[in-house]
Amino acid sequence: MDALQQHLFDSYRAAQRGESAPPAPGTHDVAVLRELRDHRRFERVVAGRPATGRLRTALSRLLARLSGGRTPGGPVRPS
């Protein structure tokens, strides 16, 4: 039984009992991913490592290189 079939079964059972239907599958996925990200950031801070992401740093360096040394909102770097 996949998630959709289980949801339909639970919705039918809730309707028979006069209860509210359960949330659809995938409704809270984004919230769970955000909580996981926040928890990982918290663990990094507790371990004494910087909480900034490596991906964001790498992308900002790439953007600075592609824009000719200029960073968004930052000073102009000499070439």
Rank of each mutant, 00 (worst) to 15 (best):
M1N: 07
M1P: 06
M1G: 08
M1L: 10
D2A: 00
D2C: 00
D2M: 01
D2N: 13
D2T: 00
D2R: 01
Q5E: 04
Q6N: 10
Q6R: 11
H7T: 00
H7K: 01
F9R: 11
F9T: 09
F9H: 08
D10P: 03
D10M: 08
D10K: 08
S11P: 07
S11I: 06
Y12H: 12
Y12L: 13
R17P: 02
R17K: 14
G18Y: 10
G18K: 07
E19D: 15
S20K: 13
S20L: 15
A21F: 11
A21S: 14
A21V: 15
P22A: 07
P23Y: 13
P23K: 08
P25T: 08
P25W: 04
P25G: 02
G26C: 03
H28C: 06
H28F: 14
D29V: 08
D29L: 08
A31H: 14
V32W: 04
L33G: 04
R34I: 06
E35G: 06
L36G: 03
R37H: 13
R37E: 07
R37N: 14
D38P: 05
D38E: 14
D38G: 09
H39M: 00
H39P: 00
H39F: 06
H39K: 08
R40E: 13
R40N: 12
R40D: 09
R40G: 02
R41H: 12
R41L: 06
F42P: 01
F42Y: 15
F42V: 01
E43K: 02
R44C: 00
V45L: 09
V45M: 02
V45C: 02
V45S: 03
V45Y: 05
V46R: 04
V46M: 09
V46G: 03
A47G: 08
A47D: 07
G48A: 10
G48N: 02
G48Q: 05
G48T: 02
R49Y: 15
R49N: 06
P50Y: 09
A51G: 11
T52Q: 00
T52A: 02
G53C: 05
G53K: 06
G53T: 14
G53P: 04
R54Q: 10
R56G: 14
R56M: 10
T57G: 08
T57E: 13
T57Y: 05
T57F: 15
T57S: 15
A58S: 13
A58H: 05
L59D: 12
L59N: 12
L59S: 12
L59I: 12
L59A: 15
L59P: 10
R61W: 07
L62Q: 11
L63D: 12
R65C: 05
R65L: 15
R65V: 13
R65P: 00
R65Y: 02
L66Y: 06
L66K: 07
L66M: 13
L66D: 11
G68L: 14
G69D: 10
G69F: 13
R70A: 12
R70P: 04
T71S: 06
P72L: 10
G73T: 08
G73H: 05
G73W: 10
G73F: 06
G73L: 04
G74L: 04
P75Q: 12
P75F: 14
V76S: 05
V76Q: 15
R77M: 12
R77I: 09
R77E: 14
P78E: 09
S79L: 10
S79Q: 08
S79K: 04
